[in-house]
Design a protein around this nucleic acid. Sequence first.
DNA 1: CAGTGGTGCGACAATTTGTCTCAGATCGGG
DNA 2: CCCGATCTGAGACAAATTGTCGCACCACTG
Lengths: 180, 180
Amino acid sequence: MSTEHDTPLLIVDDDPVFSRVLARALTRRGYHVATASSADEALEVARRHQPVLATIDLKMEGRSGLTLIPELKALLPELNMLVLTGYASISTAVEAIKLGATNYLPKPADADQVLAALQQSSPDAELSVTDSPMSVNRLEWEHIQKVLGEYEGNVSATARALGMHRRTLQRKLAKRPVRQ
Amino acid sequence: MSTEHDTPLLIVDDDPVFSRVLARALTRRGYHVATASSADEALEVARRHQPVLATIDLKMEGRSGLTLIPELKALLPELNMLVLTGYASISTAVEAIKLGATNYLPKPADADQVLAALQQSSPDAELSVTDSPMSVNRLEWEHIQKVLGEYEGNVSATARALGMHRRTLQRKLAKRPVRQ
DNA sequence: CAGTGGTGCGACAATTTGTCTCAGATCGGG
DNA sequence: CCCGATCTGAGACAAATTGTCGCACCACTG
């Protein structure tokens, strides 16, 4: 476990909240974390920081994270890149891997899942024994909260975006095991 | 268009209807088509047929098509493999590409899409990123597939890990993934 | 051979969703 | 000030999904 101590890691994400939370969690686990909030900033920071691991968001202002992958790869051929996105799709997953990403996860994902995905870099994939995956309900809850935030709390719009009935979303939000 | 004339192509799928329809469509377009309905048969046929292109179904009787990918690759290093499945998920897509598949398409897909996916050689970083978040159901499907993969397809263990009833998981798996 | 743990699937009750419907609130014009 | 559009919470009831239990049937192992 001491092998990853101070391993330089780069987080590329334009959502400051997500970025900060993940950075904190990874720092606590002993990584040397840097963050960037755009593709261009990522290249800049990468030059200085020389990361060994990176997480890359796809949907960002300006260039998409997809174009960033080959650029980072050119800069740091050894870099282990995990694509992490709230707008996941099979087609971008396929492209990301072909472009050289080592893994691809839909958000929400917690720090442990991120690390497991980064570690699982070898193509043959020794199955990591993730102690306990997120329950379906928790995953759903976090996703709902995130999207709800993106729509500034508009329940109707969120329900439409999530492809669920407004009444259902309403009910799910009503039995909140959570505050604010 | 004459370049693909008589190009040997292998279809691996255990659904005879799908297999026959696709074979006919591709034959009409000038390919020299062979079919196989299991992983083992695929290896056998591949030896004789020496395909340049192949489509591989994931969910088949016996071994999954996923294990077939590296085997075919070992047999025919130049083989261009397209994974084609009715139970598409990001996690199997990532796995398939890492194992050497050149592309991945959810069924249903018509012959033209299949050919386009097989022909498309270089990755495209300009691919547009979806602008709507995943639906709750789709996210659930992706998560289930990922965990299921981590437990090597063990339904009971996956259900336990996800805190859901085996019967329920079973039923969810029987359904196709929701689009969009 | 018995024991353990996996899988598929039928059946029926318990719960959750979908659908429809109202009755406010709010907001930005015209 | 009223209009139309849109958002909201909530009741009611049907439709669909899930929880539960049970059973048969492997495969593996001591």
